[in-house]
Design a protein around this nucleic acid. Structure first.
Lengths: 234, 234, 234, 234
DNA sequence: CATGAATGAGAGTTCATTCAT
DNA sequence: TATGAATGAACTCTCATTCAT
């Protein structure tokens, strides 16, 4: 039935529209301070309508984050698939991070908002498993080229790919998080007193984060590259 | 006036007692889920009394975080002062992180809870400036030995000490954050389906984070060590 | 028009189906906790469709109760018509109550749910008059044999048949209500502390309610039986 | 400390004031339709204040009902203690019912509102046990003189006192319930059509419920009075 | 200094009902 | 006839904050 399908499709579109609205507000106001009221208003629906599409606030949130995770995985995969060789595939991890961060700075923040000291208890939610599964998938995509590089004898054979993955991931995340942080809450939000204004440290918010992410990646990989191997240089 | 001083001192003690209580609860329940009610109860004061010591919830929080920052700076300084030479002082940064994390895992989490997507708007707060000042001080302590190492010709002269500091800091923070995250919300909170249970990825929560933090530090420093210099090896 | 009639008949059937579904849920969940949502779902119609058949929730409820009242009247009539003589017809009132209660315990509860402190304001409803009419009919059926017994000189001539009817009705209702109450909320729902567990009172839920209803009926009738008359004994 | 006591006493008074307000509204609107909002407004407090005195709506309700139960027990005890001999003590049960009903018609309705098809799930409530205990106490007070009468040889020795108690209680309750029902929802609320207006049945709301309750009690007791015993007559 | 009492403002959630299709 | 979609109005409950004492 074409009519059935069309209705289904329209419903999906409305759902997506709500998710997008929710995402914007989650980003602007933070997880706890976002109200269903506001999401509804901005989505131009009544509060009750939200509950037709999502069981409760938590589900709306976790669906939102899952969407972002999927997007991130897509970017990671895309960069890897475009990379010519193993070397470039490893390097593409950092590049993918940067790309995702540049194209969707808000989404990046949302991903890193899953701070356990703050947020919802996702474990009480049905969508929780999917969220975890997506998270694992990110790790898998990140670690995949590293594993292959070890197998191919490019990296030291006693290297733990998971450890390298963790270092690449957390390093990149950390740098970009800091950048994002400074961009939003830095000199714009507070008027610093004279004495602190022009310190050397103020440069921190103008650092070249692209360079830093790539540098960090290189440093990590260099540290486990098999001695004697010179297939790729810094 | 001795009596004046004593009163002042007592007041300070009560303030500190409240802050300590608040810290415990902020840690256990998260920022948003901590209520003034509970802090008051646990501190054995009435809710109204809290407002005699702190203008509002935000101030209590920022004062709490400032305290933790001071503690962190002390650990950093202590490790640096105990380090024999420049090389060891740089390495001590990672060690200090690990030390602080191991001794005060909760405080570490609190420091990293200042995620702009989540929390209070510190900029609306009087204590904000002190918070920022403390933050800067951390950076200064972290960058100090790096600056000196560049001046001493150990590190490449075109190295930006701030960049290196950022990489060390964010890298270490990222690794420990992940560890803290996994320790608390990892396999314990959600029952994963069979298929995901025994994946290779499950090892992630048992990785040796000490090794990883130190490894990352080494890698970063190695990458900017002046060529030819072999004063310290990996 | 045969086609008209068939449509009418089908409509009636659908209405009845909905009423039956509603009845089941009203019984299981209680009046206030039954939602149109659930009735619709269980009846396999959409919520909006319910409103094609019933003006609102109240009407659906009152129609449901009217149906039960009719059933009850039928049972009363049936028992009376089967009774051989006046004596037995009076006794049949209690028996009919017991029969109805045993066969349709849920329906009994529904009838007695029309507690003014609790429920809907039936007076705002079009079906209200029919409901009242049905109620009256019950009274009439109950009182009819009593009136005749007075006319026939079996009962004291100064007896008010309505009073006797009220006593029979309310007495029986009360006993069965208590039984129904205890059966559902009695020892099963709450864990009583040791001290109350084995009291003599616990027997209350195992009392023989059949015996009690009949006993009460006998007692009431005996009290107004004309002195000297010994046509029927206890 | 006199000041402590005074505060405690004042608190108790406010609590009681709220309970009384709640009772009035529970009566007028029914259990489910009473809102905390309205109770607060009528009690001249804010909604939030109610929650300082009662954990939630259910607790407020069960505390209210417990209060009424205590009052009822007091009336029962009072009538029994004033009754000169066993015979009068048994009769006093019905009289106490009537007295309570006449003096506190609203409270009577509230007691009988604990209809399982309707109301809150008291079993989820801490006060539940006290409620049950109170209920049991009513039964004990009702049955006590009956037990003694059996022991004293006034009533047939094979009489089950619990059964007699049930019949007295449910009979009285039923009659008074009907009266209360008719008084509130009877001819006042609905405009009956001509045909039903002047039927013989209309007298039902003017029946002498005092006479009926006492008559029913007499009938029940007579039916188990030991044959030959003529200590008290009808 | 300390606090019991009170509350405004708002949170998430539910449900009977309506209406365009 | 049937329904998917939408919602207004209400609900219970919470919490940071204030103020009289």
């Amino acid at each position: 039935m074409g009519i059935q399908e069309r209705k289904q499709r329209e419903r999906e579109q409305r759902r997506t529209a709500i998710i997008n609205t929710a995402m914007r507000i989650f980003l602007k106001k933070g997880l706890a301070d976002t109200t269903m009221e506001e999401i509804a208003a901005k989505a131009e629906y009544s509060k009750a309508t939200l509950y037709l599409y999502f069981k409760n606030k938590e589900e709306l949130l976790s669906v939102t984050i899952i969407l972002v995770l999927k997007q991130f995985i897509a970017v990671l995969e895309e960069h890897q698939s475009r990379a010519g060789n193993l070397e470039k595939r490893i390097k593409s991890i950092g590049e993918a991070y940067l790309d995702f961060y540049d194209r969707f700075p808000g989404h990046f923040k949302l991903l890193n908002s899953m701070n356990p000291i703050e947020d919802f208890d996702f474990s009480k939610n049905e969508g929780c498993l999917e969220l975890i599964a997506m998270n694992r998938q990110v790790w898998e995509v990140v670690c995949r080229p590293i594993v292959e590089a070890i197998r191919s004898g490019i990296l030291e054979s006693d290297t733990d790919p998971l450890e390298i993955g963790v270092m690449l991931w957390t390093g990149s995340t950390g740098i970009l998080n800091l950048h994002s942080h400074l961009k939003h809450s830095g000199p714009h939000r507070v008027e610093l007193p004279e004495e602190h204004r022009n310190s050397e440290l103020s440069r921190i918010s103008q650092l070249d984060y692209h360079k830093m992410v790539l540098h960090l990646g290189d440093a990590v990989i260099s540290s486990v590259r098999k001695t004697g191997f010179r297939g790729w240089g810094r």
